[in-house]
Nucleic acid binder design. Structure first.
Length: 598
RNA sequence: GAGCCGUUAGCUCAGACGGUUAGAGCACCUGACUUUUAAUCAGGGGGUCCCGGGUUCGAGUCCCGGACGGCUCACCA
């Protein structure tokens, strides 16, 4: 992640905080305390961003591929088909072997048993928290000693992430969702309990109460007066200095990654703020957020291969949606003139640094608008998000400096091709001539229809040049079965794709609302389907019926949220911005797993 | 799906040409240390070298097969 994104000015986090993109899971007491200056005696909780967001512990690049998959070994026989439903073995009902013995785990188990023998519950319960780490740092970061003395007792809960024994004292760092704070325990202050404190391991959850002071070296610290066991950690945390680097372990055990890698937390905090910012932007413009089916009998709205599933009680085939488009437009027919949905799509295709089988998109529709309106809306959305989240319109994307300041370049699809080939190309240009020119540029056109060649040329010769934000506009109709034809050129449609950093981030068009034209285009696609083109659109009769009911002119757009976040967080891999990216199971395929569905 | 690279202690990493008992730092354990902070000092324990075959007197190292991951390509957003 870039310095910009992580070590951003304070204002960025304050802005996000004021939008309420903070902690929501600590109950209403936490919510009640928002926005007020906390007084310890009021027992309020503070909601503040992680102060360590400013201190990136990972280098900006992920470095060369790492070896050391490092995670615990899992026995291959750890797989079980746990349930059998109607004779079909459940897939992926995996049981990890949790018996891997290593010295540190054994020691921790022994400590746990020792606690139980003393009548102490190692896995505690409710703990009333009065403060969070970041709140104390903000409130008392510059406080003088007298102020600290008068501040009173504080109670915090969290995970111990560092322990430094020092004679009859012990320093520790406690991490909660907002950041970390130092603890100082003394034998003379804790009495018998000091022996329990010394026995704590990094990774354990405890609750502490005590008073604030500042150490000789100036660090704000809680002098522990009492502490409570909240959860014993049986597994050691990764190394404190190098942390957890192994990419595979970071994805598989994201819980560990989140504990030890500040940057990972920052990415997902940014993700939440990004999505929150989008909602705020659209809500302010009268858009209504909706949710449409993820399981669809006819997967439509995009060109992609779907996942197939089955509903038992209804005994029907269903598909995970590849796009919400056709349902959202049904809502436009129903009079919801401005709608949007932020949700998952599923495509049964390759996995790469750019593609995860499930990915999140924003899709929105605006009646009485066309694609030119959406270009302006998109510019406004991106710049507003960048400004509020990152505090700038200037993004660092790998080696490239990208400026989001509008207006963005608009490049006609055929204009791009013409420039790339050094000849004027239009939909009417002789295909053989285009093929020759393409071959002259090192392209080997693999035959087919003219539009396939145009697409090839564009993707190979034009897209790689689109680093700065560029709207590619006016696509050939063959590539856009759901878009409205241009009034002055029936071979083209009112459509744009937004490219930033060579990647397509958005796709939008003026929606086809002529049911007769739509039906004709569906039928063309249906013929492709029959010829074995798995990616052709299916004929959705109800959708045509909806158009027959009358859909106002509208423009719609889809924006890839994961890719947008990659851009904002300067992350080269989509897996870095998805909490749990799809990976093959550890240890390979289950022996009793049936054939895969396609 | 193809190519290249990788997998060694809990974590991060070394391991020349195939040759004693596979190493380091952190983590862990024992001891010392009552304001440390990558605490320090002294001592110690910890390994299915990803899995399975093969070659060899001898394999972490070479060969073959497999698993998983990373990158690139293909498909795609």
């Amino acid at each position: 992640m870039s310095e910009r994104a992580l070590a951003a000015p304070e204002s960025r986090y304050r802005a996000a905080h004021s939008q309420g993109a903070a902690l929501r899971d600590r109950g209403e007491e936490a919510t009640r305390g928002a926005g007020r200056i906390e007084r310890p005696e009021e027992g309020e909780r503070v909601r503040q961003p992680d102060p360590f967001l400013h201190v990136s512990s990972l280098s900006a690049d992920q470095g060369p591929p790492n070896r050391a998959r490092g995670g615990e070994r899992r026995g291959r026989d750890g797989w079980r088909a746990r349930h059998v439903h109607q004779g079909v073995p459940a897939l992926g009902a995996r049981t990890m072997t949790l018996d891997d013995e290593n010295e540190q785990i054994r020691q921790r188990r022994e400590k746990l048993e020792a606690l139980r023998r003393r009548g102490i519950d190692p896995f505690g319960g409710r703990y009333p928290v009065t403060h969070w780490a970041r709140g104390l740092a903000d409130r008392l970061g510059n406080a003088v000693d007298e102020e600290l003395k008068g501040f009173g007792a504080v109670s915090l809960a969290g995970r111990l992430v560092a322990l430094r024994h020092h004679g009859k004292t012990c320093f520790a760092h406690l991490m909660d969702q907002t950041g970390r704070i130092q603890l100082y325990a003394r034998a003379d202050a804790l009495g018998d309990e000091y022996a329990r404190f010394v026995d704590l391991d990094t990774g354990d959850f405890i609750g502490v109460t005590g008073e604030m002071f500042r150490t000789r070296t100036g660090e704000l610290t809680v002098a522990v007066k009492a502490f409570t066991f909240l959860a014993k950690s049986l597994r050691p945390l990764p190394e404190k200095w190098h942390g957890l680097k192994d990419v595979e372990t970071r994805y598989r055990q994201r819980y560990v990654d989140l504990v030890v890698n500040t940057e990972t937390r920052a990415i997902f905090q940014l993700r939440a703020r990004l999505i929150g910012g989008i909602r705020k932007f659209l809500d302010a413009r009268g858009f209504l957020e909706v949710e449409t089916p993820m399981m669809q009998p006819i997967p439509g709205g995009a060109i992609a291969r779907p996942f197939k599933t089955h509903h038992n009680a209804l005994d029907m085939e269903l598909y995970l949606r590849i796009a919400p488009e056709l349902y959202l437009k049904r809502l436009v027919v129903g009079g919801l003139e401005r709608v949007y949905e932020i949700n998952r799509n599923f495509r049964n295709e390759g996995v790469s640094t750019q593609h995860n089988p499930e990915f999140t998109t924003l899709e929105f529709y605006q009646a009485y608008a066309d694609y030119t309106d959406l270009m302006e809306l998109t510019e406004a959305l991106f710049t507003e998000l960048a400004q509020s989240l990152l505090g700038t319109h200037a993004l660092q994307w790998g080696e490239h400096a990208i400026s989001l300041t509008p207006p963005w370049r608009r490049l006609g699809f055929f204009e791009g091709i013409s420039q790339a080939l050094g000849m004027t190309v239009t939909p009417a240009t002789d295909a053989a001539a285009v093929a020759r020119a393409a071959a002259g540029k090192g392209l080997t056109p693999h035959g087919g229809a003219p539009w396939e060649l145009w697409k090839d040329v564009f993707e190979t010769l034009v897209e790689p040049t689109l680093v700065q934000p560029t709207f590619v506009i006016d696509f050939p109709i063959e590539l856009s079965p759901l878009a409205k034809r241009k009034r002055d050129n029936a071979a083209l449609v009112d459509r744009f794709e937004l490219f930033v950093g060579r990647r397509e981030l958005a796709n939008a068009y003026s929606e086809l609302n002529d049911p007769i034209d739509q039906l004709a285009r569906f039928r063309e696609q249906a013929q492709l389907l029959e010829r074995g083109d798995e990616e052709a659109h299916w004929l959705d009769e109800d959708y045509v019926r909806a158009l027959e009911q009358g859909m106002p002119p509208a423009a719609g757009e889809g924006i890839g949220i994961d890719r947008l976040l990659m851009l904002f967080a300067n992350q080269p891999s989509i897996r870095e911005v998805i909490l749990f990216p799809l990976l093959r199971p550890e240890g390979g395929r289950a022996p009793d797993e049936g054939g895969t569905e396609r």
